[in-house]
Write a protein that binds this DNA or RNA. Sequence first.
DNA 1: ACGCTCGCATCAGGTGGGAAACGG
DNA 2: CCGTTTCCCACCTGATGCGAGCGT
Length: 602
Amino acid sequence: MLGGEGESSTFSSTKEAADERRKSPAVDGDDPAARSRYTEHGMGADRYYLPPAVSKQNPEAANPCSFLPYTPSGTVYTPSGAGRYASSLHLGSVLPPAGFSPSTAGRSHFSSAYQLGQSPGCIYPPYTGSGSALSNMTLPTGGPGMRAQVYLCNRPLWLKFHRHQTEMIITKQGRRMFPFLSFNIAGLSLTAHYNVFVEVVLADPNHWRFQGGKWVTCGKADNSSQGNKVYIHPESPNTGAHWMRQEISFSKLKLTNNKGTSHNTSQMIVLQSLHKYQPRLHIVEVTEDGVEDINSDVKTQSFTFPETQFIAVTAYQNTDITQLKIDHNPFAKGFRDNYDSMYTAPENDRLTPSPTDCPRAHQIVPGARYTMQPLFQDQFVNNPPQNRFYNSERAVPQTTSLLSPQTEDGASQRWFVTSMQQGGNSTSTSNKLDLTPYEGEYSSSLLPYGIKSLSMQTSHALSYYPDSPFTTMSAGWGSRAAYQRKVTPSLPWSPRPSPTAGFPEDSDKVKPQIEEEVNGSGSLISSWTETQASALGLDKADSYSTACKRRRLSLNGPSTEDSPADIKCEDLASAATNSSSYSKEPPPSKGMAAYYSFYTNP
DNA sequence: ACGCTCGCATCAGGTGGGAAACGG
DNA sequence: CCGTTTCCCACCTGATGCGAGCGT
């Protein structure tokens, strides 16, 4: 519980936090589950308290133009003529059973609010597959409203899948996403109420097919898909304080291809097989009743994480994806070849901590007894089986790899992409995410999921896990002391893995940046950008890629040793500076930022 | 006696594999 | 015929109920 205690002691002293907790409806009594969650294990809400003074975003700082070497690969296709927000028509059917205002007015407000932020035409330009997202961005000017910032908590895992083109199984009865969407949110008004929901939209206009070991387009997408495309977080509506003090998990979200499904519509999103989709997070400010707050300057904020793109399938096509799922999804442990060796190891050698080590896991879902720990654990912990030999004709050549290793290297990468603010002047071009920066890597490095030969150590998950920001969430999993110490107490995000805090090797330059932000006079964002720009030179990227390729060539670990490869790729740099990549000592948390995709609303 | 904690057993539900069924 | 979808299977996780043990 080292980490947890450290965090608690570090971040529980703010008086405002305590006051805010008392004010928060969620804690005040209308959310008993939440209350119990906050107090469980002595981890108070203040863990996530965001001091108002510090949480305010400097509009200029948030200007995406001021940073960003990172241009995401995400694009969202909006078929002309197709109502992007047809989903909003289903809002009524997807409203959570409780909590959300049952009033018709509320719903209509919600719907209208949702649509309000949409331009009548395409908010996203048609999929191009290239181009500069940044250069095409129309940036909303800074306004008085709060600009939310969203972190994708389990980004490393998403990246692993994304590298091979994530696939999500859809079934008639609905299949959960894995990895599932999990976010940290900052920058909300502590007392304002918000609805948080995920929408899944077509990512491009194509129908896809897995052929020759890779995904290729095959005709046009069927734009006429119907059915619910929105999943409202069950805890909606709730206060900004509520949303910001914990991870927002969408683990219960299910994907189905059953358009006629009438039950559980609130948990199901209807998709079409062999189409590529892009999940989007929406945060809508509402009144306490769940009605859109028309007085709010920022009504709807949307966040798109390109790495969460996936192709809906009814059966896995890419065996690398299958293996990743098996390796990381606890429910699929039965398919792991060396489950015994993995899970019967001595406690000290376990790749994953015991549930009791993860107090924060209990915060994730309401209900004192509900623990998502194992699931989350696997979302963030790399605990791949070793020595798996996976031989299949479906095994994908490296061409299916989408990301170069360095793009996963937390030490050399920063993600920061502005989100589309629907209430702002963000228009069709504002969210044009593209993969230009990634493109080169996508097409040239083709990195390999199969490279695992160097990562056969049993504890190799530790080399991955300790870097996970989620370790803060699962505080107490040990090995976080170093990171804890690096956290600046007054930093708004300190309770969570701070992107900057996660780069010890950059600590010297990062530190002033943090201070700058805390003082409200600088831009964390730009700092990241600068850091990123310098963090990974091309030659480094090349060598990195080469190293991975070399390993890929090793027949020692057929595509089978995927996860280790991931670890390797993500932590290679770490290993370089930390001779023992799987040391149980707190490794440099350089990869911290790698575990969060940090989006902000301009 | 009462309340709490812990461990065990049970069961619902989630997982990918594989074969069969379906459909263009 | 071939690609896709559906269904069933074995295996696993996680939630829950129950009883034993312990402290007050």
